[in-house]
Simulated assay, not measured.
Amino acid sequence: MNIRFSPEAPAYLGDEHALMFWVLVGGRRLDCTIPADALEDHFGAASSREDELQRAFDANRAVIEGAAEQLLTSVGCRPVVLRSGYFRFSGGGTAADTDRKQARSAKERFPRTAGSCREIDVQGAK
Rank of each mutant, 00 (worst) to 15 (best):
S47F: 00
D41F: 03
D31V: 07
T33E: 14
E16H: 08
M20K: 14
L24Q: 15
A62I: 06
M20V: 13
A67H: 05
V63K: 00
E40F: 00
L24S: 15
A62G: 05
A18H: 09
A46D: 12
V25D: 04
A18C: 09
F21K: 09
R29S: 15
A18M: 10
S48F: 06
T33Q: 13
S47A: 04
R28H: 14
D41N: 12
A45N: 09
D15R: 09
R55H: 07
R28N: 14
W22K: 14
D31R: 14
A18K: 08
A62S: 12
D15L: 07
L39K: 04
D51N: 09
S48E: 11
V25H: 05
M20Q: 15
I64T: 06
F43C: 10
F21M: 13
L39C: 05
L30A: 09
A59V: 01
R61Y: 02
D31G: 09
E16C: 01
L30R: 03
R61F: 00
G66L: 08
W22A: 13
T33K: 13
A62F: 04
D37V: 02
F57G: 06
E65L: 09
E65I: 01
E50M: 08
E40K: 08
R28A: 15
E50P: 02
V23E: 01
R29F: 09
F57S: 07
L30G: 08
D15E: 14
S47R: 00
R29A: 15
S48K: 07
V23F: 04
I64Y: 07
L19P: 12
A59F: 03
R29Y: 10
E40G: 01
F43E: 10
E52N: 12
G44Y: 00
V25F: 11
R28W: 10
V63M: 12
G27H: 07
W22E: 15
G66R: 06
A59H: 06
V25R: 13
A36H: 00
R61C: 01
D37N: 06
A59P: 01
E65F: 04
R61V: 01
F21L: 14
E52M: 05
A59E: 13
S48T: 04
D15K: 11
R28F: 12
I64P: 07
A67L: 10
A38F: 03
P35R: 03
V25C: 15
D15Q: 11
D41R: 13
C32L: 12
A36G: 08
G66D: 10
V63D: 13
F57M: 05
E40P: 00
E52D: 15
A62H: 08
L19V: 08
V25E: 14
D37I: 01
A56K: 03
A45L: 09
R29E: 15
M20R: 15
E40I: 12
F21Y: 15
L30C: 07
T33W: 04
A45S: 12
Q54A: 09
M20D: 12
A18R: 09
R49H: 10
N60T: 02
